[in-house]
Write a protein that binds this DNA or RNA. Structure first.
Length: 487
DNA sequence: CAGCAGGGGGCGC
DNA sequence: CGCCCCCTGCTGA
């Protein structure tokens, strides 16, 4: 049976992570995801959950507060880089006093179906910390981590077969390897359109928004917003909207919070990284980075891009001899896609869209009642209406500056020497060869470019230099933690 | 070290 | 949506 092979193969992925975990921590591997009935009939030792209590009444696991091997395995399973999610103890060991002094706040109420508060939030760092194992990261990363590590639900479902896993990465590998589906949209849907993950991220977004509503962010005045505004904002939070990819909506600051926060409280903030902006169009464009879709393509060399203007820039650089046609750069949508992009799916006010809470309820109910742990969520809507995306057809226009900026046209001259370059940034970088602004803090070495200083301190001093300041880290983990400070 | 290409953000229309 | 600016990584001299 292909299905049996599929499940077996994917289980081997999970076994691999279990083995890594076992070697690292000597524990008995990752807890298997089992049905409610099985859980009821098994002891902790049988489940390999010696450090996790299971509350049969509430259907939740209650791990110890220290970071567990399960958490580590989840990080690996979800492909989280060290910069994305960290054990808080790492940061504390870095002597980052500002971190140790910061407060971590939690929601007053638990997420209803989990009876957990999922994570605490640090307004200064704008980071979340898993309530169960102290792993730290951005909102979406901690949400994925908690779901994969502590929820014990196989919420990520293969759209082609009954295979499901608690970790999106396992299903991603499954889809690619077992079904030979490389459609970015299909793979992307696993994470972006998962109602359970969405519920968790929305819960954490609410925590973040509550702080910004009440105190207007870290740079805000200490005076809370008026009670009237708080009430209004709570109403807003109670009915969040979905954004283009099904992930929680960006934080929408009110006028009151905008008045109180001047720098960090942008109207739209990304759940995946520290980016924030007041313009919705910029936020939408930014989100495409995380979706990893490249809907545009050079029709000469077939290279793919995520933005149309990048195609044009590429074209004018590489294929100047060919006429540029804007209408030919959009790629055809994947054949197995519904024909409707996420953008249109969530921006056409589709009245048939199922409310997210209902989806979550169905998923949880399904997960807890189906004995084999399979679920059938997240299937693409086969009946979704198709909608052809047509770009407008503006006249092809090549800027005069682009035309005059040809190879060999060096009109940017250095004031210190006879050098001349083709553009301003080239001149700027050349000037650094005279000024050498990047100074090593451990010797007299000076460099014209930051990466050269980084190479120097790594090879000579075995340190890792921050590109934005003079900080020198002992290892990559320490550097990553430091760089989050800049963010 | 400079040339070059790719990628991301800000801004104006 | 398109343009501009900036930054970064790669490459060859």
């Amino acid at each position: 049976m292909p299905m049996a092979n599929t499940t077996s193969t994917m289980d081997s992925y999970e076994d691999m992570f279990k083995e890594i975990t076992r070697k690292l921590y000597g524990e008995d591997g990752l807890p298997d995801v089992i049905s409610n009935e099985k859980v009821t009939n098994l002891t902790n030792s049988e489940r390999g959950l010696n450090n996790i209590d299971y509350d049969v009444d509430s259907n939740v696991f209650k791990p110890d507060e220290h970071i567990t091997a399960f958490g580590l395995a989840a990080l690996m399973q979800n492909g989280l880089s060290s910069g994305s999610i960290l054990n808080s103890s790492f940061q504390q060991s870095n002597k980052l006093s500002s971190i140790t002094e910061d407060k971590w706040i939690t929601n007053e109420d638990s997420l209803q179906w989990t009876q957990s508060k999922i994570a605490s939030y640090n307004p200064t760092q704008k980071l979340f910390k898993c309530i169960d194992c102290d792993c730290v990261g951005f909102l979406i990363r901690v949400a994925e981590h908690w779901l994969g590590t502590h929820a014990n639900l196989r919420v990520f479902q293969c759209p082609q077969c009954p295979y499901a896993s608690a970790w999106a990465r396992c299903v991603r590998m499954h889809i690619v390897r077992q079904h030979n589906i490389t459609s970015e949209e299909t793979v992307d849907n696993l994470l972006k359109d998962n109602p359970v993950l969405h519920e968790i991220t929305r819960y954490l977004q609410t925590l973040k928004s509550k702080y910004e509503v009440n105190y207007g962010g870290k740079n805000a005045s200490s005076t809370p917003a008026s009670s009237e505004n708080i009430t209004q904002n709570k109403q807003d939070l109670s009915s969040p909207q979905r954004n283009i990819n099904g992930s929680p909506c960006p934080t929408v600051a009110t006028d009151a919070s905008n008045r109180n926060s001047n720098i960090t409280s942008k109207r739209y903030s990304c759940s995946y990284c520290p980016y924030a902006t007041d313009r919705r169009d910029l936020f939408t464009r930014h989100e495409n980075i995380h979706r990893e879709e490249k809907p545009f393509q050079c029709y000469i060399c077939q290279k793919q891009f995520n933005r149309a203007d990048h195609v044009k820039k590429h074209f004018l650089r590489m294929h100047r001899e060919h006429p540029y046609d804007l209408n030919r750069i959009r790629r055809q949508p994947p054949k197995n896609a519904s024909g409707m992009s996420y953008y249109h799916k969530y921006n056409n006010n589709d009245p048939t869209a199922t409310p997210i809470d209902t989806n979550v309820q169905q998923v949880i109910q399904h997960q807890l009642t189906i004995p084999n742990g399979f679920s059938f969520i997240n299937r693409p809507n086969q009946n979704a209406p198709t909608k052809t995306t047509q770009l407008p057809k503006p006249s092809v226009k090549v800027s005069s500056k682009s035309n005059c900026k040809k190879k060999g046209d060096k009109k940017y001259s250095c004031c210190y020497c006879s050098w001349s370059g083709v553009d301003n940034w080239c001149l700027k970088r050349h000037l650094n060869t005279h000024l050498k602004p990047f100074v090593c803090g451990l010797c007299d070495y000076k460099a014209a470019r930051s990466e050269r200083l980084a190479t120097h301190v790594l090879k000579v001093h075995n340190k890792r230099a921050c590109g934005r300041c003079l900080y020198l880290a002992d290892d990559q983990t320490q550097l990553t933690a430091h760089q989050q400070e800049h963010q």
